[in-house]
């Protein structure tokens, strides 16, 4: 029997306070009118205004969004292919190496991934910029996509696919009309994960960006090194709100789907 004790209640409240208070402080003080970030001087949206006029931040945000969009799309395609190969591919030469290369980037320190890619780009004489960041981000996020997608591929019933093949589907048709719709939620969450990882990445982007391209995390990092600034608070608030809206919507949608599925089951039982 599970009993929710006072100890449980206390540890949950303290734990969530620890997780959320720093972010709440950040949000509250982004509306502070004073430049002194730890002294409250009244409500103002001044820093949001200054942020919108800050060309350097806007440029960096645009670069970041482009990189994140392109790299997460390529990573989703490559990662889904890799997951399919890992789960359904059977035996082929170098399979162990392949699965090793999928899992290794997940535990690799970012400084090493960044350094190794930079050394590669320099030794083949590739100019660093948006293109090299996209290559770097695609490489590590395809591994995350492939882990997410393969866990879904493992869990579903393979006989549906085999039925499609028996009924005369080509392997590609079977993938397109049977497998893909089933794994679609995992592919979408893989894409979202790849997109967020790319938006978030500082270390690998710093190594592979070169002087011509600056992403938002690089920009934030260089200004944060000088201390707390109200513009960064405003920017953080915008980013935190976007993520919150996204996560809450996603969990509401999935909750609704579960409720709907349960209702369908009940209906089916009643009619049966």
């Amino acid at each position: 029997m599970r009993r929710f004790t006072w100890f449980n209640a206390t540890s949950l409240s303290l734990g969530f306070a620890f997780l959320y208070i720093p972010m709440i402080i950040l949000i509250v003080y982004s509306f502070n009118s004073s430049r002194l970030v730890t002294v409250w001087a009244g409500f103002s949206t001044r820093w949001y205004g200054e942020l919108i006029q800050n060309e350097a931040f806007l440029d960096a945000a645009w670069v970041t969004l482009r990189v994140a969009f392109v790299s997460s799309c390529i990573a989703t395609v490559l990662g889904t292919m890799a997951a399919y190969v890992l789960v359904r591919g059977g035996r082929f030469m170098g399979r162990t190496l392949f699965s090793g290369m999928i899992y290794a980037p997940l535990v690799m320190p970012e400084v090493i991934t960044g350094l190794s890619l930079l050394l590669l780009f320099i030794s083949i004489g590739l100019d660093r910029g948006v293109f090299t960041i996209i290559l770097a981000h695609t490489t590590f996020s395809m591994c995350y996509v492939s882990v997410v997608v393969s866990s879904r591929l493992v869990s579903f019933d393979r006989s549906v696919e085999e039925a499609a093949l028996d009924l005369g589907c080509t392997p590609f048709d079977a993938f397109k009309s049977v497998t893909l719709p089933i794994i679609a939620p995992a592919v979408i969450s893989g894409w979202l994960l790849a997109f967020t990882l790319s938006l978030d990445d500082l270390v690998i982007a710093s190594f592979t960006a070169g002087p011509s391209a600056t992403t938002l995390p690089i920009k934030i990092f260089s200004s944060v090194r000088l201390g707390v600034s109200p513009e960064i608070n405003a920017l953080s608030t915008i980013l935190i709100s976007l993520v919150t809206i996204g996560v809450v919507t996603a969990s509401l949608v999935s909750k609704r789907r579960i409720v709907q599925a349960r209702r369908d089951e009940q209906m089916a039982e009643q009619t049966a």
């Binding site: 402080i25 978030d200 944060v224 980013l239 935190i240 993520v243 996560v247």
Partner: peptide, 14 residues
């Protein structure tokens, strides 16, 4: 899902 950098940054002010 929230930016790693921002979560670390939040502690500077604290």
């Amino acid at each position: 899902w929230t930016s790693f950098l921002i979560r670390v940054y939040a502690w500077i002010g604290i």
